[in-house]
Amino acid sequence: MKQIIKNIYHVGDNECSVYMVDTQSDEGLVLIDAGMNLDMIRQINSHGILFENIQHCILTHCHIDHIGICAQLSRELSDIKFYAHELDAVPIEKPNHDGRTAASWYGVRYEPVKLYQKFTSDTILRIGNYDFQIIHTPGHTPGSISVLVESKGKKVLFGQDLHGPFNEIFLSDLQDYQLSMQKLLGLEANILCEGHFGIFQPNHRVKQYIEKHKRLNQPLL
């Protein structure tokens, strides 16, 4: 586990990057996505941080590499709360949506989990000492979200899978994606925590990354 900035960590990579915010409160730890490797999450015990203190998990979208161990987490951490956008809720909460979750791509079966809250629009989720700005950024999937958190005066953007891929079975929409990327550019984030390609900083590198993929993924005329 590596600290990115005060109270914000990169937990590790296993099919996707998992990030974590220590709320410095009784609300404990917040995961941004869960990944597919429970052992990786169990090994966060450092910096005075304990696995048992994970109380929240914000899911950026419904793909198996981001949600694969949610059911396992809920068995080990009985009070953990899961959050996602309502447009990706069905494949997260219901069985037999292997196309939407991309579970079939990995040759695994997804075990559904109940969501504590389903976002219907952009909102602020207050957890402990932090405001988590939930931003609906459809394109990769209909219910894709990005999350903005501030630490030490820096805007940290959790923008998982901003690169895509885009597929009909995911219900991807490149026109929606273009609007979403424009919305993220307007945030002028200082740090981007991406789902598969690492951490980008400062602001000009964040901007370059988003603009690059916005340019590469134009809708067909």
Score class of each variant (00 low, 15 high):
3 Q>P: 08
7 N>C: 02
8 I>A: 04
8 I>H: 01
14 N>L: 07
14 N>H: 13
15 E>L: 04
17 S>K: 04
20 M>P: 05
25 S>G: 06
27 E>Q: 13
28 G>R: 01
28 G>T: 03
29 L>K: 01
33 D>Q: 12
34 A>P: 05
35 G>E: 06
37 N>L: 05
38 L>F: 08
39 D>V: 11
39 D>W: 07
39 D>Y: 11
41 I>Y: 05
41 I>D: 00
43 Q>I: 04
52 E>C: 11
53 N>S: 13
54 I>D: 00
54 I>Y: 07
57 C>F: 01
57 C>I: 11
58 I>S: 04
60 T>Y: 00
61 H>F: 12
61 H>W: 04
61 H>V: 03
65 D>E: 14
69 I>F: 07
69 I>N: 06
69 I>Y: 06
71 A>C: 10
72 Q>C: 11
72 Q>W: 08
78 S>W: 12
80 I>T: 09
80 I>Y: 04
82 F>Y: 14
84 A>Q: 05
86 E>G: 06
88 D>M: 04
89 A>Q: 01
92 I>D: 01
94 K>F: 11
96 N>D: 15
98 D>G: 09
101 T>G: 05
104 S>E: 09
109 R>D: 10
118 K>C: 11
119 F>P: 01
122 D>A: 05
129 N>I: 06
133 Q>V: 09
137 T>R: 02
138 P>R: 01
140 H>Q: 04
141 T>L: 04
142 P>G: 02
143 G>T: 01
143 G>Y: 03
148 L>Q: 10
149 V>W: 07
151 S>E: 05
153 G>Y: 09
154 K>H: 09
155 K>S: 01
155 K>Y: 04
160 Q>V: 07
163 H>V: 06
163 H>E: 12
164 G>C: 02
165 P>Q: 00
166 F>R: 08
170 F>T: 03
174 L>V: 10
175 Q>M: 13
176 D>A: 15
178 Q>I: 15
178 Q>S: 14
179 L>E: 14
179 L>S: 13
180 S>H: 10
181 M>E: 08
181 M>P: 10
181 M>S: 10
182 Q>E: 15
184 L>F: 12
184 L>R: 10
184 L>P: 03
186 G>S: 13
187 L>C: 11
187 L>Y: 11
193 C>F: 06
197 F>D: 13
199 I>V: 15
200 F>Q: 10
201 Q>W: 06
202 P>A: 12
205 R>A: 14
207 K>M: 14
210 I>Q: 08
216 L>M: 14
216 L>K: 15
216 L>N: 12
